[in-house]
Write a protein that binds this DNA or RNA. Structure first.
Lengths: 198, 198
DNA sequence: GTCTATACTTGGATAGAC
DNA sequence: GTCTATCCAAGTATAGAC
């Protein structure tokens, strides 16, 4: 008979990652201390290190969850008409941008990933999966005559992601209205790949 | 009679910022220690703090220099035909992306700026100047019939910057060839604003 | 002006009682 | 499993000799 309740264990881990995510987004990874997290989560350091071996491990856990969410969306996009699928994936990628507090986290993960190989691998695999699926959808849309690609499907997919990055980059400007700009993003992408005006 | 030679003083400051910039790009701001900088620049900590009050001040100095370079380019762009001016500014913004080591520095400044008000002000002023000039050039190009803007000149200018951000975001992918992709960036922008294919 | 040595602070992680 | 107390390392910045 096990003494640990796996459900409770997972719930507590989740509580810690959720709390930490807010702090990382606000102050950045390096400037958020373990003490900060413990205080916010209302636990002791001893307890925190019972659940996670290091501070970095907490950070990684946050993005592992994110990868699983993504995979689900990609699967659903494959069921639509190709171009609609592309737009759906793009819309989904833009969702976090609409929540101000999440934006800081995205900037942080990019900055950290280039120096943390394990985190990098996680992020890269995730981006790769999105890019591959976008490339497939774009090629299909092209073959079906919905769009007319001026570059390879792969390059187009890369730039679709680049446009989303551009959206995130602009978020640091307090005057930038992300919600309104998502439609401009769609317009730019549509014109790029020769789709009908949306 | 002054005991300090202002030329030598400036040269030494420059030596420190150049050395530090390389380290910041490679390891990030927070993970680069003052000791690291001193070792690489071959000076002592005492000496370093004679030239800069804090570590952050070194970081800021790097980007102050950058702002001055930018202002010069913007002035020259105003002398060309409007659309050529736009393309020249964009090309200039892309130059740092071609140097791998500088890319890390760009990611770092974005991550840091949201938490350092003084640095933020520096970066924001710089971006604002670029955006204003781009908006003016785009509007003139539109009025001259070189392009046909589907959105306000200001929004278009913002997205021109967003595209450049997208380029930087893709740099973390080791397979991404920045040099080749600058032309794709120009294609996307051209189609967006209804310019002749370049 | 530049160095060496070091004071002072903070932070990540651990030990051991309960 | 959770806490308190604490260790040890690293980091910024300063003091004071030269």
């Amino acid at each position: 008979m096990r003494t640990v309740d796996p459900v409770k264990h997972a719930a507590k881990k989740r509580h810690i990652t959720d709390t930490a995510a807010g702090l990382f987004a606000e102050k950045g990874f390096d400037r958020t201390t373990v003490a900060d997290i413990c205080k916010a989560a209302d636990i002791s350091t001893g307890s925190l290190f019972h659940y996670f071996p290091t501070k970095r491990a907490i950070f990684r856990e946050i993005f592992e969850q994110d990868g699983k969410d993504n995979a689900e969306i990609l699967a659903r996009a494959g069921e639509l008409s190709p171009w609609d699928g592309v737009l759906m994936v793009i819309d989904h990628l833009c969702v976090p941008a609409l929540d101000r507090s999440v934006a800081g986290l995205v900037l942080e993960v990019v900055a950290q990933a280039s120096r943390d190989p394990e985190l990098w691998e996680l992020v890269a695999r995730n981006e790769q999966a999105v890019r591959d699926e976008l490339a497939v959808l774009l090629q299909r849309a092209h073959d079906a005559g919905q769009i007319k690609l001026p570059v390879s499907a792969r390059t187009a997919a890369t730039w679709a992601q680049g446009l989303v990055d551009g959206l995130y980059g602009r978020l640091v400007d307090p005057d930038f209205d992300a919600t309104a700009q998502v439609s401009t993003l769609r317009l730019i992408l549509s014109r790029f790949v020769g789709a009908q005006a949306p």
